[in-house]
Nucleic acid binder design. Sequence first.
RNA 1: GGCGCGGUAGCCAAGUGGUAAGGCAGAGGUCUGCAAAACCUUUAUGCACCGGUUCGACUCCGGUUCGCGCCUCCA
Length: 441
Amino acid sequence: MYSCGTTVYNYAHIGNLRTFTFNDTLRRWLRYRGFVLNHVMNITDVEDKIIRKSMELGIPMSEYTLKYEKFFLEDMDTMRMEKPEKIVRATEHIHEMVELIETLQTKGFTYDSDGSVYYRISKFPGYGKLSHHDFSGIQAGARVDNDEYDKDDARDFVLWKARKGEEPAWDAPFGVGRPGWHIECSAMAMKYLGDTLDIHTGGVDLAFPHHENEIAQSEGASGKPFARFWVHCEHLHVDMQKMSKSLGNIFTLRDLVELGHTPEALRFVLMSVPYRKKLNFTLESMQGAQTSIDRLRNYKLRIETAKLAAGTNEDVTKLAAEALAKFEASMDDDLNTAEALAAVFEFVRETNSLLDQEQFLEGNRAAALDLLARFDTVFDILGVRVAAGGIEDSAVEALITERTAAKKAKQFQRSDEIRKQLLDAGIVLEDTKDGVRWKRK
RNA sequence: GGCGCGGUAGCCAAGUGGUAAGGCAGAGGUCUGCAAAACCUUUAUGCACCGGUUCGACUCCGGUUCGCGCCUCCA
């Protein structure tokens, strides 16, 4: 599997993060179903914006890109995304790109213009198939180009850009310069995954022209189908509109954390809408997501700690089996995460009621926990990360013991004091009929 | 203009020829020394509008309307 990664010229925004969370969901579900993955994701670390910004700052391009690559990988980690088996940088595969361009030259798919090399789209009949673009009405050379490039056809795209000024460049048989964006993915995908990949993913906006161009390059060179499946993640919108600088509605993970939201809440929001649908992001939905996560975590805690009567309630066994079946069927159905989530919530509500009625028995505990564990294999939102330097579990337990004693002696002032002290340390107490339960906020 | 997506309760949102999942918010309740937390119940005679097909349509067909995206870099 190959995924178009990010261009490291700035912090990733939540739209980028949606696509990578989708990659992660797909990864995890394939693994859940027993597939062994070889997942490659690229990092674009040479490109117009990067060159311009690093030159403005007067620093080497790699210094600039490494900084944002680091932030990006940190964000992936914070969002609990699994790392692809390989993460590859464009600048470390210039040789492969040059070779691919040479192959295309030999096969007559290219032409030179002012030291740059272009792909001649009219040589590739299937162009436009993936994105349903019909170019039959466009005549070669009909469009009046701007001055920047001298192309024979508006559709043609650059494979190798001739060096301009002091920008970073590499030697190649066709002149000093740097690779075009599209050739990066073709070269790296084929190097690690062969001529034909099983799955190629990316954001919808990449379908045209990026993926269309990848197909033209790879299939032009190899003569074989490039990808068996193309899977595109729809965009995330903010308040019904695409994020853009002019609208000022771009959020990064760091922005949300500063507003007091958790990364898990974002993960939940991103996963609550199937990848193929547009997702309308609102800050209100972040709040709702957190409440939902807390509810699931409370349920898990309840199942783990409740005092249960011996025996097994077959109705619960049946409910758990049905919930798991629905969860798996939903995920199998083109990763319908919304339905999968619904299956779990339904089970939680039903079994919470049974717990209230003491109909949930000791023998049912394992099945419920197994469902949650399987759910969390994919969703990964139940585990709480303990902040470094936080209060130790044993200290919490000791204070709770003291508080319980104080309560028994009706020293409510002291018990409330302890409750407050723990709350300040991020520990929430819950008095239940089975005793005191606590959790980290 | 070309191609495509979508309009489902206050909000987010699944579904799809057989009579509306789920979450959040709201309302009511249970528990409790008080709280907090938690839990439960409840919330769309109707799925943008009009017409058609059908025993039956939110779901199919035709039309209308509104919103959005791609067609240049973009996850």
